[in-house]
Design a protein around this nucleic acid. Structure first.
Length: 496
RNA sequence: GGUCGUUUGGCCGAGGGGUUAGGCACAGGUCUGCAAAACCUGCUACUCCGGUUCAAAUCCGGAAGCGACCUCCA
């Protein structure tokens, strides 16, 4: 908390000094997944971005309440599936209860996020569990005069709101007049006074499975009410940070602001943060484009491109490779998926982990020949500049190089400096960026002992120039996925 | 069509008026029984055209390419 932390606020389009509304406390809301399919690489981006923010704020000493919702009510679909809820549609296809589908994909989402070492949020509210709150919100907007009932559905009066507040479009940089002429024909359009109006409550068609009672009709809540209702319930009418993907800026977040402002006179939060998209072959990876690769597919190393039937993944990529890959780009930049980029990330991640392992085996000297005390501040500076994790990583690579130089006896470090580096890695690599050493297991001590014994035997063989035995040991270990590396001070090993 | 953003070396990706980003790959070297790793050295780029400036990849103007949003989407 002592150092100024700048974050880019989408609302003002500039970096601003972060200052919580309540001293020492931070309220943060991030739009979570709609649970009707497996999480793909695109879902990992906001999860990891805001996980790092959550971790960093916590590290700075704030008490953070992090709310990330689960959307299990579903949104409207267009075209042939007019008015049908996405989850309901899937449920019918699979002959499952809608809530069963939602639960299944929620579990799958949790599993994938756990593997990515994404911390669970403080509260993970479900839209379906907050229908009453959403109905109350709609009623308040009606009472305020910014909504109207039409054929059992309730719509937000964007025109009136825009005229009164001059706010609509501020977040996304949109001009209301232009929107009126460009909005496409959608379901329920004839019920609206204006094409730009959006649904707050939707009357359910007879075949619609997910439905709730309300003062207006049996139906379901509109596209944007859950975040407003649940954000208010758990974080208050005004909280610190609201995050999500850039593609949610409009209409989702713009509408959230409108809903909240029409009731309270102000938007829901102080800072709006948006992560950029992950692209594949230059295009946004998205469910609707059908060009997404699920996280499980990355972990298992197989994804067939539906267009040409070709395998897209050169190999399996571990969760930490994915995490490192995402952290190597700034969260507001697009990042393009490619096997080359992932392969490079994998090696880079491994190099960092290996350096940390080497660090723990360094022999301290009486004096340090290199200065390693500056890295910490450089890393903080990078984090404080709108969470610039690529810069943090570049400094950590510098530190890794220093560690390796010392290991090669080309430089020396005192015990104090070695401890400082250990603490640096612990803080930034593990605590803040949330990486973990995938090679380590619960049996670390046992394996270390066994490996030491095996390497001793091999060292004896080598001393006797018994290359047959020494190579056999190395080859056998290699087959088990253990690489043996001979150095000046004897052999070391590493899981491949 | 409208709004916004982006264009960096073989690849990924920071930065952002004068100073080495970093990683991966590649080449040479040190070490080594061999290999791997590590270390050293090399490769030094900013789409194009104008302008401002002592100085522009960085600022301004224009063009082109690419992308996002305008519709559910992370």
């Amino acid at each position: 908390m002592s150092q100024p932390f700048l974050i880019y606020n989408t609302l003002t389009r500039q970096k601003e000094l972060f200052k919580p509304l309540t001293p020492d406390h931070v309220g943060m809301y991030v739009c979570g997944p709609t649970v009707y399919g497996d999480a793909h690489l695109g879902h990992a981006r906001p999860a990891i971005t805001f996980d790092v923010l959550f971790r960093y704020l916590t590290h700075q000493g704030y008490k953070v309440r992090y709310v990330r919702n689960i959307t299990d009510v579903g949104h409207l679909e267009h075209d042939a599936d007019e008015g049908e809820d996405k989850i309901a549609k899937k449920a019918r296809l699979e002959q499952l209860e809608p809530m069963e589908v939602a639960q299944y994909y929620t579990n799958r989402y949790h599993e994938a996020m756990d593997r990515l070492n994404v911390l669970r949020p403080s509260i993970e509210p479900h839209a379906s569990g907050h229908i009453i709150e959403q109905i109350e919100l709609v009623q308040k907007i009606l009472d305020a005069g910014y909504a109207y009932v039409s054929n059992g559905s309730v719509y937000f009066d964007v025109n009136k709101y825009a005229a009164d507040t001059k706010q609509y479009g501020r977040l996304s940089g949109r001009v209301i007049d232009e929107m009126l002429s460009t909005t496409r024909q959608l379901d329920g359009q004839e019920e609206k006074r204006n094409t730009a109006d959006f649904a707050l409550w939707k009357k359910a068609a007879p075949e619609h499975i997910m439905r709730w009672n309300s003062p207006w009709s049996i139906g379901f809540p509109g596209w944007h009410t859950e975040c407003t209702a649940m954000g208010t319930k758990y974080l208050g009418e005004m909280f610190d940070i609201h995050g999500g993907g850039m593609d949610l800026m409009f209409p989702h977040h713009e509408s959230e602001i409108a809903q909240q402002t029409s009731v309270t006179g102000h938007g829901p939060c102080h800072y709006w943060m948006h992560n950029n998209m992950i692209t594949i072959e230059g295009q946004k990876m998205g469910k609707s484009l059908g060009n997404f690769i699920t996280l499980d597919e990355f972990f298992n190393g197989s994804h067939i491109n539906p267009k040409d039937g070709k395998e897209m993944l050169a190999k399996a990529y571990s969760p930490m490779t994915i995490r490192f890959f995402i952290l190597q780009a700034h969260y507001r930049s697009t990042v393009d998926f490619s096997n080359d980029a992932l392969l490079a990330a994998e090696k880079g991640y491994s190099r960092l982990m290996q350096a940390f392992k080497t660090l723990r085996s360094l022999q301290p000297s009486k004096a340090s020949s290199i200065d390693v005390k500056g890295y910490r501040q450089l890393c903080y500076d990078a984090m404080n500049d709108d969470m610039n994790t690529p810069i943090v990583i570049s400094h950590l690579f510098d530190a890794a190089k220093a560690i390796n130089t010392v290991n090669d006896h080309k430089a020396t470090l005192t015990k104090e400096d070695i401890d400082e580096l250990t603490s640096l890695f612990q803080t930034f690599v593990f605590d803040i960026m949330g990486l973990r050493d995938e090679a380590s297991t619960d049996n670390t001590a046992l394996i270390d002992g066994l490996m030491q014994m095996i390497l001793d035997v091999r060292a004896t063989a080598k001393a006797n120039k018994d290359w047959t035995t020494s190579d056999k040991i190395r080859d056998s270990l290699g087959q088990l996925g253990i690489a043996v590396k001979d150095g000046k001070d004897g052999a070391t090993w590493e899981l491949k």
